[in-house]
Amino acid sequence: MTEYKLVVVGAGGVGKSALTIQLIQNHFVDEYDPTIEDSYRKQVVIDGETCLLDILDTAGQEEYSAMRDQYMRTGEGFLCVFAINNTKSFEDIHHYREQIKRVKDSEDVPMVLVGNKCDLPSRTVDTKQAQDLARSYGIPFIETSAKTRQGVDDAFYTLVREIRKHKEKMSKDGKKKKKKSKTKCVIM
């Protein structure tokens, strides 16, 4: 069974824990209790493949930012979460993405942009803004509501699919490099 290491990042209060708990335990946590770091595991079937999701729910508070490099190193894919009623959390996505790329030393890291709290009427981040940002990053965008469960499975499952595509691409690139290195030079 394939294991996928997913990391949920975003500013404090955007609903990272609520999304994760909704996926794992099928219930909505409405009281806000700032996370330092929590880890969850769940076995699911995605596109006919049974897999184990190892999900790291991270601290959004700035005082825990020193811990970010460590979990970013171990993560295979990242859910970059903002709240649709919090423009600052949307603007912060850029910083999370840049930090992930720096730590992973790669421009090509599996990510999904997630606009959470889409059940709320007080939207300050337009869907088109988020779609445009995701398009500019070359990553999928999904709106979710941890409260109603809308888009929750889709967000995590899409990230797994992005990781699969990335692994497939990397193995193809690896095979191309191996083929090239088999060419021999004969000096007579």
Rank of each mutant, 00 (worst) to 15 (best):
T2H: 12
T2C: 06
T2K: 06
E3G: 06
E3A: 06
Y4C: 13
Y4G: 10
Y4Q: 04
Y4H: 09
L6H: 01
V9W: 14
V9T: 13
V9E: 11
G10Y: 01
A11G: 05
A11I: 05
G12Q: 02
G12R: 03
G13S: 09
G13H: 11
G13W: 03
G13F: 01
V14Q: 12
G15T: 02
K16L: 15
S17Y: 02
S17N: 00
S17M: 00
S17V: 02
A18M: 03
A18Y: 00
A18V: 03
L19R: 00
T20C: 03
T20K: 00
I21E: 00
Q22F: 06
L23S: 13
I24L: 09
Q25G: 06
Q25S: 06
N26K: 09
N26A: 12
H27T: 09
H27R: 11
H27L: 14
F28I: 02
F28D: 00
F28T: 01
D30G: 06
E31I: 03
Y32I: 04
Y32F: 13
P34M: 14
P34R: 14
P34E: 12
T35W: 15
T35V: 15
T35K: 15
T35G: 14
T35A: 15
T35H: 15
E37M: 15
E37R: 00
E37T: 01
D38W: 01
D38N: 00
Y40K: 01
Q43G: 07
V44H: 04
V45K: 08
V45Q: 14
I46R: 10
I46N: 05
I46S: 07
I46C: 06
D47H: 03
D47S: 04
G48F: 02
G48V: 04
E49D: 07
E49Q: 10
T50D: 05
T50P: 12
C51E: 06
C51K: 04
C51I: 10
L52K: 03
L52G: 03
D54T: 02
I55Y: 14
D57L: 00
T58G: 05
T58V: 11
A59D: 04
A59G: 01
G60N: 15
Q61D: 04
Q61H: 04
E62K: 03
Y64R: 05
Y64I: 02
A66C: 13
A66L: 12
M67R: 03
M67H: 05
M67I: 12
M67N: 04
R68T: 03
D69L: 05
Q70W: 14
Q70Y: 15
Y71R: 09
Y71W: 07
M72P: 01
M72C: 11
R73P: 03
R73S: 12
R73F: 10
R73I: 07
T74V: 08
G75R: 02
G77L: 13
F78D: 00
F78W: 05
F78Q: 13
L79E: 03
V81S: 11
F82A: 14
F82V: 11
F82G: 15
A83P: 15
A83H: 14
I84R: 12
I84S: 15
N86M: 01
T87P: 14
S89Y: 11
F90C: 11
E91H: 02
E91W: 04
D92I: 02
H94Q: 07
H95I: 07
Y96L: 14
R97E: 09
R97G: 04
R97M: 15
I100Y: 12
I100D: 01
K101T: 13
K101L: 13
K101A: 10
K101I: 09
K101E: 14
K101C: 13
R102S: 10
R102L: 11
R102Q: 12
V103E: 14
V103D: 09
S106A: 11
E107S: 11
E107Y: 14
V109Y: 07
M111K: 02
V112Q: 01
V112D: 04
L113W: 13
V114T: 01
K117D: 14
K117W: 12
C118T: 09
C118K: 06
C118S: 12
D119I: 10
D119R: 14
L120K: 13
L120R: 13
L120W: 10
S122C: 10
S122I: 10
S122A: 10
S122H: 11
R123N: 13
R123T: 12
T124V: 08
T124Q: 12
V125K: 09
V125S: 11
D126Q: 06
D126W: 06
K128A: 05
A130W: 11
Q131C: 10
D132F: 08
D132Q: 06
A134G: 06
S136I: 07
S136W: 03
S136P: 14
S136E: 13
Y137Q: 03
G138K: 02
G138C: 04
I139N: 11
P140T: 04
S145T: 13
S145E: 15
A146Y: 14
R149A: 10
Q150Y: 05
G151L: 14
G151D: 10
V152Y: 10
V152Q: 06
V152L: 12
D153R: 07
D153V: 09
D154T: 07
D154H: 08
D154N: 07
D154K: 06
D154M: 06
A155G: 11
A155R: 01
F156G: 05
F156N: 05
Y157H: 09
Y157S: 12
T158Q: 07
T158Y: 07
T158F: 12
L159T: 08
L159C: 06
V160E: 11
V160W: 03
E162S: 09
E162L: 08
I163R: 01
R164F: 14
R164G: 09
R164N: 10
R164I: 13
H166F: 10
H166R: 08
K167Y: 09
K167D: 10
E168G: 12
E168M: 14
K169A: 10
K169I: 08
K169D: 08
K169W: 03
M170H: 08
M170I: 08
D173S: 12
G174C: 10
K175R: 08
K175S: 05
K176G: 07
K177W: 04
K177P: 09
K178Q: 08
K178R: 05
T183S: 08
T183A: 08
C185D: 13
V186M: 09
V186K: 02
M188L: 07
M188V: 09
